[in-house]
Design a protein around this nucleic acid. Sequence first.
RNA 1: GCAGCUGUAGCUCAGUUGGUUAGAGCGUCGGAUUGUGGCUCCGAAGGUCGGUGGUUCGAGUCCACCCAGCUGUACCA
Length: 497
Amino acid sequence: MSGNKSFRPRARLPRGFRDRGAAEIAAERAVLDTIRRIYESYGFEPLETPSFEYTDALGKFLPDLDRPNEGVFSLQDEDGQWLSLRYDLTAPLARYVAEHAQSLPRPFRRYQTGTVWRNEKPGPGRFREFTQFDADTVGSASPAADAELLMMLADTLEALDLGGDYVIKVNSRKLLDGVLEAAGVGLDDLARRGIVLRAIDKLDRLGLDGLAKLLGQGRKDESGDFTKGANLPATAIDAVLKFFAANDPESGRGGPRSNTQILAELQSFVGTSTIGAAGIADLVALNELIAANGYADGRIAIDPSIVRGLDYYTGAVFEAQLTFPVANEAGETVVFGSVAGGGRYDDLVARFTGQAMPATGVSIGVSRLLTALRNRTSAQIAPLVVVLAMDKAGLAESFALVRELRAAGIRAEAYVGDAGLKAQFKYADKRGAAIAVMEGSDERARGEITLKDLALGAELAKSVESRAAWVEGRPAQIAVPRGELVARVNAMLAREG
RNA sequence: GCAGCUGUAGCUCAGUUGGUUAGAGCGUCGGAUUGUGGCUCCGAAGGUCGGUGGUUCGAGUCCACCCAGCUGUACCA
């Protein structure tokens, strides 16, 4: 590289990764603070774990290959062991609990936020590096633990001003297993079960027709790509389709139906399946709790078509979807996944310990949520005062001025560039500064400073016609005694609101 | 991975049936104005026309392959 003088690296970002500026950071902080406030009010306590874990602890080794799955970013440690960047916060939690089970209270309820990484193809609202905010309850098999998380998620989304713009859909993997069992798909037929579950997951996009094809021979999409089907017998396909036709919460018999109505009709579809009956019992218990607390008003809705991709889920599964269309930078409406999800993963800790340890959790996709809200929210940033550099003699005094302002709790900076005054004003504009402070030789001689209200000045500039008048008039600026700096700045900021 | 669409200045785009030196707006920088943001005027910088090969007297324009981006789809262990 150094041998080739003409080489210049192209300044560019790896795909799926993003730079984030002041506005987005402020917006994310606001969201994180809100979520944290709600989670803490529920009594969850914080936990942090490292970005890297041993790949086997994440369960990301390819079967029969001494190599991590491509979906995680991995590297080999000096001793040859594989490390991977965490792809969610749940697997590290399972490792943590397995490592410290003896000393933790049970149920153990913790929250955690942080960056996770997935080496996948990026898309709308899908990044290779993003922020999640999780809460989990480990050590309780009770539907009360799931219900609590659902209600807390609803409270959180409300606190994020999403009231009326989301729905949390709940299902149970046990229920799905029961339906499949009743339809003749054995629980041990993992490959076929996977295909069927993935097909069900696409019901909202493909409809019953698409689902029927995926359960049978397969389906060709508009682009001509063929997706292999599950090759179920016709009777099984009928049974599954009937189940979803009857339990579509949207279209079923004219409008959305209540959780109780849906639950009442589930029984006939699981037949004699024990696991199916258990799934229904879980959902009934869960619904009683949320209904008694007023959350079954459409915010939390039973929806038997919710599956979730991760295969470690064992019981309740849920996801929060936004109910308004999301547009990309080009203004096109785009297919946008759920902004939060979760469920019960009763076997994840036992992977390490061999001891049963039921657990359930929820995860908010903070990055995706921020993308969806991009055009709806703008976080407030404290106003900025810039002290301009008039001449070298005043530099030390500039720093004295900003120190005074900061001591009074005002965000202030001294201009440290070397451009002329005109450029300094442009700089202050670009920074979005509220006030510029000037103390040149004229002011010093009189023991004064000059304050300029930049927002007001910009307003007044619209009605100024000649440059001479604009310069001479010096709109929106006043000379005040040096000693009144803080008081006058505060007064000016107060006027801005 | 599969498919469709799109690649021309920092950004948004124009560029005729292939024809001199590839343009505009915005933005950037400088000046008019050596201590005042806006408006106006003047000037400047900024381009491997995504890449390679081909057709042609001549290619930003036509052809082939490749690359990248977007969107959808698949996969997401």
